[in-house]
Design a protein around this nucleic acid. Structure first.
Length: 846
RNA sequence: GCCCGAGUGGCGGAACUGGUAUACGCGCACGACUUAAAAUCGUGUCUCGUAAGGGAUGUGGGUUCGAUUCCCACCUCGGGCACCA
């Protein structure tokens, strides 16, 4: 008997499998389909630590079992490689990002290849490959050319909207649109110029151009993310690196109107087999709340003013204009029932109505100062919970509470956000803690008025019931180089043209420097030919390519479509998605959004892309911290594979604890998994043609059942522990039946593919174990004839009984009562009742 | 602050739907093999107690014949959101 040489065995089988392409998947097959997908990685320069492959091993075990169970399994891998880290790596190493990605992919593949994962590598995708991002651009154009019909609750072509405008204007259109959209008739629409029409349509498109505030750092010449900013001693925002001042700057951006899908993204969660935890995070992120929109009239109290025209008897205005018109303040409240307790109104400092009353506000200087003070603060500063409330009253004007006609003061304060609701609130200090804090600080009245019916009062004061979401539209632009170019161009009059399909992909141009431009614009803006052609200079954000990659794996070489109808209809949604929980509010929301959109437009036949999902827990370092170069606690999987073998690494990573739980790595404990593999190898010596004992058969079949069920539930740790128990039993016997041992090898093979293949073929099999059929357990063989039950007196276990499984309840009770260990506790006492739980326990209550 | 999740031996963890808590593995101790060590194998390993028996699943209470599991309060840790009207 030769010794177990993991290096030799693993190398041999890996090259054999590759040669025979045993993991290659066709877009058709006899069995049912099964799409098992890993979240594709961002190949970074530092390489993998032992935590990274844990999720891949889990999905691999699952995919391998499903394959053996007769499913046609799609199990691909690819790379998400656009974005900042690759760009920064390139800057540091002075190479092109494309080169950096190539290098990192190579490192990644070398590290993965030695673990023995069963990917179909022929389906590899890379988001930075023009052949791939051609279709990212194409999908962008479909989204750009769509609007959202609220009545039909789905996306429709923008051409249809134009037809509606031609026919009847937008008065009756119920669409999701930007909130400063004005109402027009068909007649008026026809009079608009081309540019004006374009601007109006832009307010309806699901991908649209707009402006948003960014954190701008002049010294660094770039936009910073929120977590790249810290506060100095005075509370001013400064960059984390360098400590330069950061201010807010309005910047042109592209957006995705994900808010149109808020309701569907919320209700779609119900049918998904995801952990409740992740669903809850998405629900909170979407943040649905129902309430009332109510208008408060503004009255100028300063005498002889020449302000906006106002008439007391004027009808409230119900236009969709965000900030209402000049003489009405529209507030959003979830507590319309408290309206009689409203003692003041608060506007966001950005509220448009403020400047409309510039000449009526008597303390304008003070107001202006407060507003400009807000400008230099980041949202984070403004929204710190423990922050003392600040604000300024708008003197000279008052609001009228529509419920009781009372005149109440109007304030501006940064605790009211322009981006949520209507940017204005009615303050009810009696019922709202924030309003109460504010009222206390500024000596505003706090009154206790009886509550009224919310919907009734809303109707009475001419308001309406509305639903609001916390979720915002997603910014879909980066002012950086390393991303997909946006496939649009404009002429000198600002008319936007989309690129035709035949002109896709619009490839990233070569550029001298892809570092920050200093103007905040993308490096593409520095390329004369690019700008001259009128191409868009923003690039797409990192999440663009990852929002649809699962569809490309189905048909990765297709040149005519992002994937053929046939392939999409065959594979449909991902059946099992495996990856980190940190993508809950990013990737997992965006890709659901894109997939919903593609469903609306008839490109895919399913609304939800990821039916089942398991979230891998993090592998922590031995010290309980995250593994990081910084702490010097990184364990490299290459070393583990070298010293213990890939099978041992795989078994250990699955055995160390529950799949979804974060666990500390222990190189000390890994020896247990290696011993297990060693024992399995040594068991070969005991193989015989003799029939196994009934006891061994029983435990074997129980183990097959347990392992099958555990893999299905991603309970890999207990699957392995049950196989360890079986091996312990095998070791106690003199011989092992060959067929029984082969069954054991099969259920172990998803975890330890190399050693099981080696023994399998040592036993005379010619075909790969991974192509064999998953063993079935025999129901008859797992039934115990004799079982052990506990006998309790008053809930405490006093003894155990071993009885035939079919013994009657009465007989068991008699036996229990006669038992000498029980009699000690029951004599001279009245037996009140006896509780019998079949096959488990008898409890005698005295 | 609000919303989720978790807390079990020296360590990682197990326990179906309320039914014998501590499976499996690591570590440790002792023993076998060995000149010796490693490897391997065997035995033991929650705690107090000689035993009978008692006590332990973060803490305190409750429901129940019976609670790691359900309920209430609190403590600690992890995650999400963060003045969302």
């Amino acid at each position: 008997m030769q010794n177990y040489d993991h290096k030799k065995i693993e190398k041999k089988w890996q090259s054999e499998w590759e040669k025979k392409e045993i993991y290659k998947t066709l877009n058709s097959g006899k069995g049912k389909k099964m799409y098992v997908l890993d979240m594709f990685p961002y190949p970074s320069g530092v390489g993998l630590h032992v935590g990274h492959p844990r999720g891949y091993i889990g999905s691999d075990v699952y995919a391998r079992m499903k394959r053996m169970q007769g499913y046609n399994v799609l199990h691909p891998m690819g790379y998400d490689a656009f974005g900042l880290p690759a760009e920064q790596y390139a800057l540091e190493h002075k190479i092109h990002p494309k080169k950096a990605v190539e290098e990192n992919v190579k490192t990644f593949e070398r590290q993965l290849s030695i673990i023995g994962l069963s990917y179909d590598w022929s389906r590899k995708v890379n988001t930075t490959d023009p052949k791939y991002y051609k279709w990212t651009q194409w999908i962008f154009l479909q989204i750009y050319n769509s609007w959202f019909d609220v009545i039909k609750n789905k996306a429709r072509s923008i051409k249809e909207l134009e037809l509606i405008f031609d026919k009847s204007g937008n008065e009756r259109v119920n669409a999701v649109c930007s909130n400063d959209t004005e109402i027009f008739t068909a007649k008026k629409w026809k009079l608009f110029s081309k540019k004006e029409k374009q601007d109006i349509l832009m307010k309806y498109r699901l991908a649209y151009e707009g402006y948003s505030e960014v954190n701008w750092c002049q010294e660094m010449g770039t936009v910073l993310a929120n977590d790249e900013i810290v506060n100095d001693i005075k509370g001013n925002s400064i960059s984390e690196r360098g400590g330069y001042p950061v201010e807010k700057k309005l910047m042109r951006q592209w957006f995705m109107r994900i808010t149109a899908y808020a309701d569907r993204l919320l209700s779609g969660l119900d049918e998904l087999e995801w952990s409740d935890h992740i669903k809850e995070i998405q629900r909170n992120w979407i943040g649905k709340s129902e309430g009332s929109e109510i208008s408060f009239k503004v009255r100028v109290t300063k005498k002889f003013s020449s302000g906006p025209r106002m008439r007391e008897d004027e009808e409230p205005d119900h236009s969709e204009n965000l900030f209402g018109n000049s003489h009405l303040i529209k507030v959003f409240t979830t507590r319309a029932d408290t309206i009689f307790g409203a003692t003041y109104v608060v506007l966001a400092p950005e509220h448009k109505i403020i400047t409309n009353y510039k000449s009526q506000i008597t303390n304008w200087e003070e107001v202006e100062e407060y507003i400009s003070g807000i400008k230099n603060k980041t949202d984070e500063d403004r929204t710190k919970n423990d922050k003392e409330k600040t604000g300024v009253e708008l003197k000279g004007i008052k609001a009228i509470n529509p419920a009781n006609g009372e005149e109440i003061p109007i304030w501006i304060a940064d605790y009211v956000l322009a981006s949520y609701g209507t940017g204005a609130i009615m303050a009810v200090p009696m019922h709202d803690e924030r309003d109460r804090n504010f009222a206390t600080k500024f000596n505003l009245p706090i009154i206790d008025e009886p509550l009224v019916d919310a919907s009734e009062i809303t109707r009475k004061v001419g308001g309406k019931i509305v639903t609001k979401y916390k979720m915002r539209d997603a910014i879909f632009a980066r002012q950086r180089y390393w991303g997909e170019p946006i496939p649009l161009k404009h002429d000198k009059d600002g008319i936007i043209f989309e690129l035709k399909n035949k002109d896709l992909p619009l490839e990233l141009p070569k550029v001298k420097s892809y570092s920050f431009t200093g103007t905040g614009e993308s490096p593409l803006a520095g390329i004369k030919s690019w700008v001259k052609e009128g191409y868009e200079t923003n690039t797409m954000p990192g999440w663009a390519g990852s929002s649809w990659y699962f569809l490309r794996y189905m048909d990765p070489e297709n040149k005519k479509e992002f994937a053929s109808k046939k392939a999409i209809n065959y594979w449909k949604n991902v059946d099992m998605y495996v990856g980190g929980a940190e993508h809950a509010t990013g990737h997992l929301l965006y890709s659901r959004f894109w997939n919903n959109f593609l469903y609306d437009m008839g490109y895919v036949s399913f609304e939800e892309p990821f039916k089942r999902m398991k979230n891998i827990g993090m592998v922590l370092a031995t010290d309980g911290r995250k593994m990081s170069k910084r702490w010097g606690n990184v364990i490299n999987p290459d070393d583990i594979v070298k010293n213990y073998g890939a099978d041992t690494l795989r078994v250990y990573e699955m055995f160390m604890g529950p799949f979804e739980q974060s666990l500390p790595w222990s190189t000390e404990s890994i020896i247990g998994s290696r011993r297990f593999i060693d024992r399995v190898f040594r068991l070969q010596e005991k193989i015989s043609d003799k029939k196994s004992s009934i006891e061994i058969e029983k435990i074997l079949h129980k183990t097959i059942k347990k392992v099958s069920e555990d893999i299905e539930n991603f309970a890999f740790n207990t699957a392995i522990s049950s196989m360890m128990i079986l091996v312990n039993e095998f070791e106690k016997t003199d011989f092992i039946n060959k067929d029984d041992f082969k069954k054991f090898l099969q259920i172990l093979s998803p975890f330890a593919p190399h050693i099981t293949e080696e023994i399998w073929q040592n036993l005379g099999e010619k075909k790969s174990i991974h192509k064999s059929s998953w063993p079935k357990w025999d129901k008859k063989k797992i039934i115990d004839e004799m079982i052990k039950i506990a006998i309790q007196v008053n809930g405490k276990v006093r003894t155990e009984l071993i009885i035939p499984i079919d013994m009657t309840e009465q007989k068991i009770k008699d036996l229990a009562l006669k038992n000498e260990k029980i009699v000690v506790w029951t004599q001279n006492k009245e037996i009140k009742k006896i509780i019998y739980i079949p096959h488990r326990v008898i409890n005698i209550v005295v």
